[in-house]
Amino acid sequence: MNIIFSLLAGFLFGMGLIVSGMSDPAKVLGFLDLAGKWDPSLALVMAGAIAVGVGAFAIARRRQVTWLGFPMLLPVARHIDSRLVIGSALFGVGWGLAGICPGPALVLVGAGLPKGVVFVAAMLAGMGVFEVIERLANRKPH
């Protein structure tokens, strides 16, 4: 059952990216280009998503199990550290270079764009680099 809702959530997420114009990297860069001709659309995408999300997470937060009876596994991390800041900064630089973040990247692959495949392959390689570094770091004696 959770597979079906995962598929549905991913599908609706992708539809939202297409409808909102966020599957167009040039439009995303139009938002990030404050000094040029600025396209504020991305801010309204966030606003629309958060308007719906706030209510949903307010309900989810008060529950131990989901409407399907699965454990509620929302994040508990609250710490703000250098990993969070440096990682987010690296992500922001990559986002600004191409105008593509992980969700739209997968939509570009579905749309059959070779450049989308190139980006996703590099992104997965980057995630792989992270996994290798993490495993090596965890292997060191403390």
Partner: peptide, 28 residues
């Protein structure tokens, strides 16, 4: 270039997807 209505509508769909994933599957 500014597309406020489709941005809000698409954003709401994204929010709905996040809501379904949290409320049914318990995940982000």
């Amino acid at each position: 270039a500014f597309t406020p209505l489709s941005a809000l509508a698409g954003g709401a769909l994204i929010g709905l997807a996040a809501a379904i994933f949290a409320l049914f599957n318990g995940r982000i």
